[in-house]
């Protein structure tokens, strides 16, 4: 059972890191924010699975903090993002 949870944690983390490509490549600003939020959620899921696998309740606290702070950072990013021009790259 624990091995299954460990493998699941690894898989979730692998998919989220794949999602990271959108952060690196994403043309639009909004893509980067979404990918960063997915990274937060994926990190939380991987932590929860890891915590359940290794029976470490402290990881749930880290996941809780990550959930709070990822929300806080995502909102700050969404508010600060430069407005999207007509389809083109937003000016600096």
């Amino acid at each position: 059972m624990a091995e299954f949870l460990l493998v699941a944690a690894l898989l979730v983390f692998a998919t989220v890191v794949a999602g990271l490509l959108r952060v690196l490549r994403g043309p639009a600003v909004a893509d980067r924010i979404m990918a960063a939020q997915l990274l937060g959620t994926g990190g939380i899921a991987a932590l929860l699975l890891l915590g359940a696998a290794t029976a470490a309740p402290a990881l749930a606290d880290v996941a809780l903090t990550l959930a709070l702070l990822a929300a806080f950072a995502s909102v700050a990013m969404a508010r600060t993002a430069p407005r999207q021009e007509k389809g083109g790259e937003p000016r600096e």
Binding site: V29, L39, G40, G43, L47, T65, E92
Partner: peptide, 30 residues
């Protein structure tokens, strides 16, 4: 763009706290 760099920096912070969990330093991860 500076905004992109900061967005990536926030992703870096999230990943770094996972690295701290792997280094079994949970307080530092928090």
């Amino acid at each position: 763009r500076t905004f992109t760099a900061v967005a990536l920096f926030i992703a870096y912070g999230l990943l770094l706290s996972l690295a701290w969990v792997r280094l079994s330093a949970i307080d530092v991860a928090l």
